[in-house]
Amino acid sequence: MTQVDRTFLVKVRQAGLWEIPAGRLAQTHASSDAVRRAGLHLIDGHSKLDQLVREDAQILGVELPNEATPEQQGWVKQLDEAQGDEFDRLFANLLRASHGKIFATIGEVRAATQNDLIRRHARQANQTVLDHMEVLEDTGLVDPKTFQEVEAAVAPK
């Protein structure tokens, strides 16, 4: 098990710790059925990933955090303070940017890991993140700048 494998498990756990609350906020703050549907996908997908990551971490002896990063907590606060159309746009773009960035990381982890549990987890995370990106894009609210931001973040340095 490598440091990249450990970091991957931590990042998956932290993603769920902010995206599940974000998905719940979509149920009460969104004005669009498409955004509420995206929120349900986040709740469902990250609940399953969270259970898997906690099981894998226990087997592999990896300590996981119990709260999102300060930046992620800030995103949840921003979402909580928004309503209606403003919430919908913020939700779609924050979450699409986040998923776009981690999508590239998952591919790198999957390609490089020699650990069967990490490989399985990366496969499941890849499927979940792809589903979330598609449902967020289906809202019709993702700004082209979001795609440019992700491209800049994942471009080779």
Rank of each mutant, 00 (worst) to 15 (best):
M1N: 06
M1H: 10
M1W: 04
Q3L: 12
Q3F: 04
V4A: 15
R6S: 09
T7I: 11
T7A: 15
T7E: 15
F8M: 09
F8T: 03
V10W: 08
V12L: 12
A15D: 09
G16K: 10
L17T: 05
W18T: 04
E19Q: 14
I20M: 10
I20N: 01
A22Y: 02
G23M: 02
R24G: 00
R24Y: 00
Q27K: 10
Q27F: 01
T28R: 14
H29D: 01
H29F: 02
H29P: 02
A30C: 10
D33W: 08
A34T: 10
V35I: 11
R36H: 01
R37Q: 15
R37D: 03
R37V: 00
A38Q: 07
A38C: 11
G39Y: 00
G39W: 03
L40E: 14
I43E: 06
G45P: 00
G45Y: 00
H46F: 06
H46L: 02
S47W: 00
L49R: 10
Q51R: 15
V53E: 03
V53D: 05
V53H: 04
E55S: 13
E55C: 02
E55R: 15
E55V: 13
D56R: 14
A57P: 06
Q58N: 08
I59A: 15
L60N: 08
L64W: 01
A68W: 04
T69C: 02
T69E: 12
P70S: 02
G74K: 10
G74S: 07
W75F: 11
K77Q: 13
Q78A: 06
E81V: 07
G84N: 12
D85L: 09
E86P: 00
E86W: 01
F87I: 09
F91V: 08
N93T: 07
N93A: 08
L95Y: 04
H99W: 02
H99G: 11
G100Y: 01
A104F: 10
T105P: 00
T105R: 15
G107C: 07
G107H: 13
G107F: 05
E108C: 09
R110E: 09
A111G: 09
T113D: 08
Q114L: 12
L117N: 12
I118G: 11
R119P: 00
R120V: 02
H121P: 00
H121S: 11
A122P: 00
A125N: 04
Q127W: 03
Q127P: 02
Q127N: 12
Q127E: 14
V129G: 07
V129D: 01
D131A: 13
H132Y: 01
H132C: 07
H132R: 10
M133V: 05
V135N: 03
L136P: 06
L136G: 03
E137R: 15
T139R: 07
L141V: 06
V142N: 05
V142S: 08
D143R: 08
D143F: 05
P144M: 09
P144I: 05
K145L: 11
K145H: 03
T146C: 13
Q148E: 14
Q148R: 14
E149M: 14
E149A: 07
V150Q: 07
E151W: 08
A152Y: 09
A153R: 14
V154Y: 05
P156T: 02
